[in-house]
């Protein structure tokens, strides 16, 4: 079985972004970039399925500017067998990403697509669900456990009230939550080996997907600032402040 893993290039999760002075967007100049943490979890899960002998090939896909190839190489260092870079100047909208991925699913016929539940830049949490709808594959989002049982899939999902377990027919789309696994670090020899793994480059035109934006960003502003309050010395002082000043407890 082949597994397709989309990996997005995003700002490193430790970096706190700033908004540009002209309010056109956030300022990513010289910001440290990395693979989206949920995509790392997706790559790890795919690699584990390959190590168990369930998966035979892992294809990592990234869509966006040339620099996205770094994240594809990273995925290959972690165990992906080959990469596909769909090159475009900017990052397309989620629905367009889903359409591009749907084309690749047609070409590659994977048994499973493992995708991050959410990109930590746009925080959309929608691409996997859109891909599942477009390709008519069943979906299991926010997965914290995945088990392949013959030609079906058992997935435990993290939902607001607790956990839910579903059984899906395959091929299917699974989106990863934080507790699915703990991704490994790439080893130096694997990083070297990854440089020689095949990486195909395609254009959105070749795939026949129109990436004209449908959402216009009118402005991007900083959130309302929250300033530090006061330090209290004792629990008694804290309780008095909460009762008398903030009036949030009685």
């Amino acid at each position: 079985m082949k597994i397709l893993v989309p990996v997005k290039r995003v700002i490193d999760y430790n970096v706190k972004v700033r908004v540009k002075a002209d309010q056109s967007d956030v300022d990513l100049t010289n910001a440290k970039m990395a693979m989206n943490p949920f995509c790392e979890i997706a790559v790890e899960e795919a690699v584990r399925l390959k190590e168990k002998g369930i998966a035979t090939e892992i294809v990592a896909v990234s869509i966006g500017p040339k620099a996205c190839q770094e994240q594809i190489r990273n995925a290959m260092a972690l165990g992906a067998d080959r990469g596909i870079h769909v090159e475009c100047e900017t990052f397309p909208e989620s629905l367009q990403v889903a359409k591009i991925l749907a084309r690749l699913v047609e070409q590659e016929s994977p048994g499973l697509v493992i995708i991050g539940k959410q990109a930590i830049d746009s925080d959309n949490n929608q691409t996997g669900q859109m891909l599942a709808a477009l390709t008519k594959m069943p979906q299991a989002t926010f997965a914290s456990a995945v088990e392949v049982e013959g030609d079906s899939l058992k997935v435990t999902r993290e939902i607001d009230g607790g956990l839910q377990t579903l059984k899906l027919s395959m091929p299917a789309v699974v989106s990863t939550d934080l507790r699915l696994n703990e991704p490994r670090y790439a080893k130096l020899p694997d990083i070297m080996k990854a440089k020689r793994k095949p990486l195909a480059v395609m254009s959105t035109d070749e795939l026949g997907v129109d990436i004209t934006p449908r959402v216009t960003t009118l402005k991007v502003t900083p959130p309302p600032a929250r300033s530090a309050g006061v330090k209290v010395e004792t629990v008694a002082e804290l309780m008095a402040k909460l009762r008398e000043e903030a009036k949030v407890i009685s």
């Binding site: 989620s94 949490n125 709808a133 477009l134 939902i159």
Partner: peptide
């Protein structure tokens, strides 16, 4: 934007061929 809404709504958007405005 709960785990229920986040789960099915992007499918509605995709099948209507429109973007979703999230959260």
């Amino acid at each position: 934007a709960t785990t229920t809404g986040k789960n099915f709504m992007p499918r509605v958007a995709a099948l209507l061929d429109v973007v979703q405005l999230s959260d």
